[in-house]
Computed example of a mutant assay.
Amino acid sequence: MAAPKFTPVDPTDAPRYYESPDHVPSSWMPDRPGEIVGFQPHGERLGAPGPDQGYAIKIANSMRSKLHLVAGENEDDVVRGCLGVALRRASMFSRAPVVHDLTIAFTVWGYLDAEPPAELVELRKPLFEGLRHVGHHYAESRVVVDHVPLDTLRKTPAQVTSGFPAEWRSLLGL
């Protein structure tokens, strides 16, 4: 540590220099119990993990005013169901969610269309019902997510929007 100029210093003192410690610890190894070796595992109920997934909630809440719901649908159920689709798309590209992920999710399920096809409304109403109850409906929300094939998730928002509503069945893999 530096000393003030007025501190007397003996001119015969040897200057200090850096010395390595006597003990050098071994290098760190990823051996914690929860450490994943290799890639993220895939399987039933494992979801699609990715970075900064909570940001999708902020994006989804900013899009609520654009959603078109029919009688009997709950906005929170819709957001919860489409969040999973958007997060799956974002994790495919190993990145955080962006507005385009949610745009695709809401579009394929017809929530950005003022008059979605009647058959689509019949399909989505029971699938999305009750999803807002977070802890109780994980399996049901996975059904909503798994309806959207990977080919649809790889498309750009413009491709999905141009294909809806004429090709809604193929966008949902039906």
Rank of each mutant, 00 (worst) to 15 (best):
H100K: 15
G47F: 09
H23Q: 10
R64Y: 07
L102C: 09
N61Q: 11
A14E: 08
P149T: 08
R64H: 04
L46I: 07
P157N: 08
E44K: 15
V78L: 01
L67S: 02
Y111Q: 01
P165S: 02
P117S: 00
E167S: 12
T161N: 07
T103N: 14
L102I: 11
L46N: 05
I59V: 10
L174T: 02
T161F: 11
V144W: 00
M63N: 06
V145S: 04
G173C: 03
Y17N: 15
I36K: 15
E129R: 13
W28P: 14
V70M: 07
Q53K: 12
Q53Y: 13
A139V: 14
V160S: 04
V121T: 07
A139Q: 13
P30K: 08
R124V: 10
A56C: 14
R142K: 12
V144I: 03
G163Q: 15
G173M: 01
A3E: 13
I36D: 00
S26E: 11
H42Q: 13
E122V: 10
L67W: 08
S62W: 05
P117M: 02
T12W: 09
F106W: 02
H68K: 05
E140I: 03
H147A: 12
G54S: 10
G173S: 00
G38K: 02
D76Y: 12
N74P: 01
T7G: 07
I57M: 15
P49V: 11
V99Q: 10
V134T: 12
F164N: 00
Y18D: 09
L46D: 01
R89T: 05
P33S: 10
R169S: 03
R132L: 07
W109K: 01
S62D: 09
M1N: 09
G34D: 06
L127D: 01
H68P: 01
V134Y: 14
C82Q: 00
F128P: 00
A48I: 05
P157M: 04
E44N: 14
